[in-house]
């Protein structure tokens, strides 16, 4: 009774979560640099980068909600 389905689920969830968060944070870092370029609407790019960091923050909050049993009703799990 090897739990192959659970294995695949965990693998896929791990990879997607890691790639999405690392990609978002990386995009935030990149947009910070793009904002330094000339001839760009600086504040718009800045806002984009902070949006990326904010989404990462949401990811962290989701992680905390998963860890803390008392918060799990919030997720509807």
């Amino acid at each position: 009774m090897v739990e192959w389905i659970a294995f695949v689920q965990v693998a896929v969830a791990t990879i997607i979560a890691a790639v999405v968060i690392a990609g978002l944070y990386g995009l935030g870092v990149r947009l910070q640099a793009v904002a330094e370029d000339e001839g760009r609407s600086r504040s718009l790019v800045r806002a984009g980068s902070w949006l990326c960091f904010g989404l990462c923050g949401v990811g962290v909050l989701f992680g905390i909600a998963l860890i803390v049993p008392q918060l799990q009703p919030l997720l509807g799990l």
Partner: peptide, 28 residues
């Protein structure tokens, strides 16, 4: 295996996404 593959892909993506052509401001 799972963590290694995830970390490999995430690292590749993080470096690829923060790479810009020289002459432009480089991401920190």
């Amino acid at each position: 295996l799972i963590a290694g593959v995830a970390a490999y892909l995430a690292t590749k993506l993080a470096y690829w996404i923060t790479k810009r052509p020289s002459g432009t401001a480089s991401p920190k």
